[in-house]
Design a protein around this nucleic acid. Structure first.
Lengths: 229, 229
DNA sequence: TAGTGGTCTAGACCACCAA
DNA sequence: TGGTGGTCTAGACCACTAC
């Protein structure tokens, strides 16, 4: 009767009991002290395992109320948000980059609203290529006040994507994934038909309370963002 | 000089030092024992904080080599994969559901390949509605061997989505997010124009080595999957 | 081989909150 | 108010790996 030894093994054992319904959804499981005794490990080890399972959505834990198996195991998928160049290289292609626009301009209303700013912003557009073929369009508005030195930066060589990661790290942001028809301009840049279904990623990022940038990435037809569950 | 007290405070302090470049990207930070002394906490507390930061992508940790600030803070976004009905309710709408198809059939080659199965599978199609308006099309193939009882299940009332969550939990899977033009059939079901850009989610799930189901969700125009960074 | 992070232990105290 | 999870501590041993 050798029980689990480390917290990973405790986690595996608990997960097994959830999966095979010995601990069905909604039921309470023994408290940490009892589990520790049953498994022959310290309570801290059980705690570590159960916290990890709670973070992964398998368990609901509340002081005094105890630990219960989650009713609807809410599965989460984690998307990594890589640098575009790294994403292209990771797929085994040769990354390229072409700057289309770099100028101060008045942002359209939705962008201004998302950032909560009214004045003119730095507008950047670029196409990233994979093996010389268009891969994704980057349309970006940057708050110059949040990115000192950006007006002197040369975006013909380095993409704004990379410049900002190094020079203006963000603390938080939001992201929206959607599908949109290609505009005439986008179709020309991506070598596809106008109206073609494009996968889009729209991000807004802040450093504390200060908005940094709004960016919309429009990927060429056939692109899919993949991850594990 | 009261330093951080708990592991969350230690984490905040370390994050602050990374953000303001006292510990720039790529640099090594002091080892756990030293930090514990500086902060006036136990080494386990520092360990807890640094592990959390490493999991979030801020730090790279290796035995013997020490802890370094990540060169490119790979940001991750976690998408929750809710039950469709819960997603609609969460948005403040009244969920509805209409079954279109429920029959054994031979899956198309891509589906058979994704699941690694050759025989006939249970094919289910349905439309989920929000406030009576079409919201998403669910096109699903289920391996009956992995879902005992599914042939007797009544999917006119309960969606396959929910039946499977309760009756055939999966251990792992993969997911792909993409954009696709609406087929004529999809356009009719979603009340949009053929060729309209649809946001699609394609999932394949397994229980151990046994494939359970392949499902493709095609969301109506205007849908966006949102999350925080 | 020595230094680092990874983990476990036994004990303790505290915050929370259902009963 | 008592039981639960959340956390901290001091110490210890181990696994890994750069040197």
């Amino acid at each position: 009767m050798s029980g689990p030894k480390g917290w990973q093994e405790v986690q595996d054992e608990v997960l097994a009991r959830i999966r095979d319904r010995r601990w069905p959804p909604g039921s309470a499981i023994p408290n940490e002290a009892d589990l520790a005794r049953d498994f022959g490990v310290a309570r801290a080890t059980v705690n570590r395992a159960l916290q990890a399972l709670a973070e992964a959505g398998w368990l609901d834990r509340r002081r005094r109320a105890g630990t219960r198996v989650a009713l609807h195991p809410v599965r989460r998928a984690t998307l990594s948000i890589p640098i575009i160049r790294a994403e292209i290289e990771g797929a085994g292609h040769v990354p390229g980059y072409r700057l289309l626009r770099q100028e101060m301009a008045q942002p359209p209303a939705p962008v201004a609203a998302a950032l909560g700013l009214t004045g003119p912003l730095l507008h950047l557009s670029a196409v990233h290529t994979a093996d010389k073929r268009p891969f994704v369009i980057e349309d970006r508005w940057v708050n110059p006040a949040a990115a000192p030195g950006i007006r002197e930066a040369d975006f013909a060589a380095q993409s704004a994507n990379e410049w900002l990661i190094v020079n203006a790290p963000f603390s938080h942001g939001d992201i929206a994934l959607a599908a949109a028809p290609a505009t005439v301009e986008e179709a020309a840049l991506l070598a596809c038909a106008p109206g073609a279904a494009l996968f889009t990623v729209t991000r807004t990022t802040w450093a504390g309370a200060q908005p940094i940038t709004w960016v919309r990435l429009a990927y060429g037809p056939g692109y899919a963002m993949k991850t594990a569950l």
